[in-house]
Structures are given as structure tokens and as C-alpha cells.
Amino acid sequence: MTKISLENITHHYGDKKVLDKFSCSFEEAKISCLIGPSGCGKTTILRLIAGLELPTKGIIKIDKMIATENEELLLPPHKRNTGFVFQELALWPHFTVYRNIAFGLQDREGEKSSHRVNQMLDLFGMSDKAKSYPHQLSGGQKQMVAIARSLVHRPEIFLMDEPMANIDVKVKENILEHIKYLHKKYRFTMLYVTHDHREALQMGDKILVMNKGAIEASGTKEELKNTDNPFVRSFFIL
């Protein structure tokens, strides 16, 4: 499985600096949760790892291979073997559930693709919704399709950007349990971005607390519960 490291990353949006000499690594086959207030740079880190953004400066390594160096994209997004669940899910509204999951897979897998897609639909309990369009699904079902769409490609890195933002508590609990089960099954390296400390505590093998483009503290949930850092304490309402 894959280890990810970011070295001295500086990144700007226009004139605004969002990351300044940021360094960090994410352990392979573990769930790392990035938590912090809005605008602290969490989403930017995911997008940099996926190759959807290029840093102003710095190096991103995936599995010891340099994927991005400064503003040069050495490894394009689709060669990083990454699954990405976007905050707004980004389900293609004109494709059925089946086609949303199968899109892109058919080219590579040929006839085997339908087996893989059906397997995913079964795994997520969505077989009866295969012919539905995204707007015909509930919030939780859309979530499931977005996750299935990312996992059907068997990624080694799984990136989730605040995917539970608009989901009610009960459905959220179910989905989070499901993700943990999938992680156990597939052992991908997972980065989970959230601003909800309960989600982070429930999911993360390691939790990284971010503030203003830097890591304020990191560790397991037990380690963070015992921290003296006032920002972390206020964030976790300890």
C-alpha cells in the first residue's frame, strides 16, 4: 500500500497564501483525519495529493515517487491510483447510478467491468437503484454511489473531502461504519477531511488538527484528548 508525503509545500489562491512550507506524511493503509476550521487548507491538501492542484513550491511523494515538484505535474491524477469523494459528491447527473460507477472502467476492464460494478452495487446495497438517476436518490444513497464510484477502481489512496456535510446523524453513522468495513477489506491509505470532531474521533487512526495552513497537533485520539494545546482543546471541546 501507499505512503504519501508532502515536503515544504507552499500554495496560493491568487494573492492568498493557504499553505506555507507545510510538511507532513500519511501512513500507508491507515485512516488519517484532517480536521480544522473552514479555510485552514484541508481541502487544498487533498486536491494537491490528487494532482488537481499544483503547489507554488514543494514536493509531493506518493510511494517514494515524486508526483509533483513545485508547479510541475510529474504524475497525472489518473496515474496516482486515487479515489476522490468530493464534498458536493460530483455525481454526473445525466448518468444512471450504474453508469456513474462504470464510467471509465469499461475502457480498461472490458466485459469484466459489469461484474465489478454489480459487485459494488451489491456491497453498497444499491442493486435496485442501478437504473436510477442521482436526483432520484436520498442523500445517503448519493453518498454510497459516490464512494462506490471511487472504490470500483480499487484505489490505493482514498481521499474524502467532508462527504458527510449534509447527511443526517443516523445515516452518517451507518456510512461511517461502512467505510471502516471497506477500509478493513481493501486496506487503502485514506485521508478523511472533516470539521466535525466526532467524525474524526470515530474514524481516524491518526488525527491531524490544522489551523491557518499549519498542523497545530497530531496523534491518536487518546493522545489528542490528553493534549495541553488550547486550540486543540477548544476544538474538541475538552
Binding site: 491524477p77 489518473h78 496515474k79 468530493f86 464534498q87 460530483a90 454526473w92 447527473p93 471509465g104
Partner: peptide, 27 residues
């Protein structure tokens, strides 16, 4: 059109021309 619709296709390796005709044009 949210940029993420095209990005989601880019991450899984859909080539630009296919992205354009399969995702952008129908929408």
C-alpha cells in the same frame, strides 16, 4: 457546472476529449 464533475472524471483517467463529450456537452 461544478468543476468537480470534470475533475471526478479526470481522477479516474477519462481522457480530455471523452470528458468533454461525455460530461460537459450533454450537461
Amino acid at each position: 457546472l461544478p468543476g468537480s464533475l470534470e475533475e471526478a472524471a479526470r481522477v479516474i483517467g477519462i481522457p480530455p476529449v471523452k470528458r468533454f463529450f461525455s460530461i460537459s456537452i450533454p450537461l
